[in-house]
Nucleic acid binder design. Structure first.
Length: 738
DNA sequence: GCAAACATGATTTTT
DNA sequence: TCATGTTTGC
């Protein structure tokens, strides 16, 4: 097989340029991943580089997994010895191996944002600072910023110029101490501590530098300073660093990603080769032209002119509706229309929005029409309270110094130890400079000032229980351990008694399924990799494309995906661009523009840009004006559309009526209904033929006028007596034959 | 120690 | 509007 076959000249150049630093500026849809994977294949097959000397870094697990899959196809088994992973996963691995010198034992835990927040609150309390005056969220953000810039507490304190900074510096210092005490690292630490490790121990750095002959970094526009430092250090010896990115798709500056890294790369590596990938294989000419017209308004931009051999295609459909319900209605109608005639499936469509709150109106419309959708984001599995609780138990077993996890499990299930006792124990731990677990031990052994006998019994009981778990964890497999913990701690019983206990228990069983993957390991050896996985994996990794489900997604999360049809809703002043980005002019507006650009360039064939006249916001309703970005699209590319077939006034009223009835009828908040609808109970598939009479739980009685297959499913077209003609999916719609 | 009333503040969230 | 965190009363 010829590795270069099927690549255009620029792509080939990028694959073949193997000596020295390389910067690839890759426009959307330009075959970026293809270039990276083929480059790796080329290095191995043509240049004879050992796969274990190549590292490819991505931002998401999903990207890493996809890259591995493609490499596996290209290279077969040798691909297994490549290092492919996220920044965080790769750093975690390095720190498990060599992190002792920066204060991390091999069994360190990784704190997520919630854990960080708890720890910061604790620190504020220890320092006698009022959390109302010093918002823990803001402090967390400030600390995260410091770490993204590779600033230690000392350096931060040295550079702080305001009273706020000084407070942050004090909290930051204490926070790091407490992380150390807990043998824990937060996400930012994974990166920063690795850099510190390399700074302090050149021999360790040398080990990795020598090993990795070639480095590849994807989504380079999203790296922060610390990540850039890391890459520079790792590649410092062989200098074969290949970074791939697109400054126009930089939409994470608020997570401290720094486009400046691209400039720095050029400056730091004057001999770098720069290759621009401008041919787009994804979108129509019209889509590309519209996207370019929006992004080209940004100043301080590397000019890049995308082109394509694809068709001219349809114009950009700009749609104005009265409010967000009508907007959603339009989307639903349009998807029904497209899937009826254009050989487009619901799964080919995506609805994108700036803020998560916007998904609600869209969801309601989908639910009302019995249309399936996949909502990306929302409450994440690993963030769920019950899942975090169980993980906290396991973390404490794995690392009893983990004070945050221990604080968490002390309270649930209720065992007579409340906030009061917990604070007391925490204070003792702090004053004696010991862990919370050690403080519990001391209390149960009756050392130090006494507790009331009831409390002492409770503390002793918990202490002994955890100790037993620790002993058992060495003797039994992971799943067995998890079952034991759930049973003996009383957590199972506790959670099942809650209002939505059944659902929560299901989630725990889901977590148990994840644990099954590690169950075959010898006793005591499954816990560690399991915890690593659950700390570093997120649900965004699960974005699968099913042909019967339309994707509902934020513009941010849509980066990297592609769909034949894209609806961008709420393209209005205040929303896109978001009002918060307009507060202090400057760069933020440019980022909003990039966000819009990212959204449009996801589309292959059709783009719909929707805006409303009025939109509800925090209860109230206010007037909206079309986004300034719309004005940047040349007129000849635009076709205006309205809410077809429904006179505005009438459509509006029936809409409202149905909505209200829907909520009242069941007497349950709409959110609950939405959640339930997402996973309908398996229902018997009924056999229907045109002419049959049917009853729909909401639309009433009607007659089947048509049937056609839609993937594995069937679409039924029904003429309802009251609600008109609807297209429904057989497996989803609450239909019965009458 | 815990449940219910009350206050608050709401962009985006790769790990 | 509505979810989340904090205060208050038992």
């Amino acid at each position: 097989m010829d590795i270069l076959a099927g690549l255009n000249p620029a792509q080939q150049e990028a694959v073949k340029h193997i000596e020295g630093p390389l910067l690839i500026l890759a426009g959307p849809g330009s075959g970026k991943t293809r270039v990276i994977t083929h480059r790796i294949a080329y290095l191995i097959k043509t240049c004879g580089v050992s796969p274990r000397r190549i590292m490819a870094v991505t931002f998401t697990n999903k990207a890493a997994r996809e890259m591995k899959e493609r490499l596996e196809k290209l290279l077969g088994q040798v691909s297994e010895s490549l290092t492919v992973g996220t920044f965080h996963a790769i750093c975690a691995r390095i720190l498990r191996q060599d992190g002792k010198v920066v204060g991390l034992e091999t069994n360190f835990v990784i704190y997520d944002e919630e854990d960080q927040q708890s720890l910061i609150k604790q620190c504020l309390q220890d320092l006698n600072l009022d959390p109302k005056q010093y918002n823990p969220q803001k402090i967390r953000n400030a600390i995260s910023f410091a770490k993204s810039q590779h600033m230690t507490p000392a350096k931060f304190a040295g550079e702080s110029r305001s009273y706020w900074d000084e407070v942050v510096a004090r909290v930051y210092e204490r926070y790091q101490e407490q992380l150390g005490q807990s043998n824990a690292a937060d996400f930012d630490d994974l990166l920063m501590k690795t850099v510190q490790l390399f700074e302090k121990h050149p021999d360790t750095l040398e080990k990795y530098q020598s090993r990795y002959l070639h480095l590849l970094v994807d989504e380079f526009q999203d790296t922060n300073i610390t990540q850039y430092n890391l890459i520079r250090m790792l590649g410092g010896k062989h200098r074969n660093i290949c970074v791939v990115g697109d400054p126009d798709q930089s939409i994470y500056s608020w997570r401290f990603a720094d486009i400046g890294n691209i400039l720095s790369f050029e400056k730091d590596s004057p001999d770098a080769t720069i290759i621009v990938l401008e041919q787009n294989y994804r979108s129509t000419k019209n889509i590309l032209e519209a996207a370019s017209s929006i992004i080209s308004v940004n100043s301080r931009r590397k000019a890049k002119k995308l082109w394509t051999e694809n068709q001219t295609g349809a114009p950009m459909f700009v749609v104005k509706t009265y409010n967000e319900q009508d907007e959603a209605q339009f989307v639903v109608n349009e998807i029904l229309k497209l899937t009826g005639s254009d050989s487009i499936k619901p799964g080919d469509c995506a609805v994108m929005y700036r803020t998560n709150a916007q998904s609600r109106a869209i969801e309601e419309a989908f639910v009302r029409y019995g249309m399936k959708y996949k909502l990306v984001g929302g409450t994440k599995f690993y963030q769920r309270r019950e899942v975090k609780d169980v993980i906290a138990y396991l973390r404490v077993i794995h690392n009893p110094f983990d004070n945050i996890s221990l604080s968490r499990i002390i309270k649930v299930p209720g065992r007579g130890i409340g906030q009061r006792t917990l604070s007391d124990l925490s204070n003792r731990a702090r004053d004696n400079n010991i862990s919370l677990f050690a403080a519990m031990k001391a209390a149960s052994e009756g050392r130090g000032p006494g507790f009331g006998s009831r409390i002492k019994t409770a503390v002793t009981g918990l202490y002994r229980m955890i100790n037993d778990f620790i002993v058992e964890s060495q003797q039994i497999g992971l799943v067995n351990l998890m079952d034991t913990v759930l049973e003996k701690s009383g957590y199972r019983e506790h959670i099942r008694e809650e209002d939505d206990g059944e659902e929560r228990w299901e989630n725990i069983l889901e977590l148990r399924t994840v644990a099954l993957d590690f169950d075959s390991l010898p006793p005591g050896e499954g816990l560690s990799p399991f915890l690593e996985q659950v700390s570093l994996v997120s649900d965004a990794d699960e974005i699968e494309n099913r042909e019967d489900m339309t994707t509902l997604i934020t513009l941010h999360q849509a980066k990297g995906l592609e769909f034949p049809v894209v609806f961008i809703v709420g393209i209005e002043e205040g929303l896109l661009p978001h009002r918060r980005s307009m507060e202090e002019g400057g760069d933020d507006l440019e980022e909003e523009r990039r966000l819009c650009y990212v959204g449009i360039t996801r589309a292959e064939k059709h783009v719909y840009l929707l805006h409303t006249a009025r939109r509800s916001i925090f209860g109230g309703s206010s007037e909206s004006t079309p986004s300034r970005f719309l004005a940047d699209i040349p007129e000849h590319l635009i076709e205006s559309k309205g809410l077809a077939g429904i006179p505005e006034q009438q459509g509006k009223r029936s809409e409202r009526y149905e909505r209200r009835r829907y909520e009242d009828e069941e007497g349950v908040p709409i959110t609950t209904l939405l959640a339930k609808r997402q996973q309908p109970p398996l229902k018997e598939i009924i056999d229907l033929n045109p002419g049959d009479r049917v009853r729909h739980s909401k639309f009433g009685d009607g007659q089947v006028i048509g049937m056609r297959s839609a993937g594995e499913d069937k679409e039924v077209i029904v003429a309802f007596e009251g609600a008109g003609v609807k297209k429904l999916l057989l497996s989803m719609a609450p239909l019965e034959k009458i």
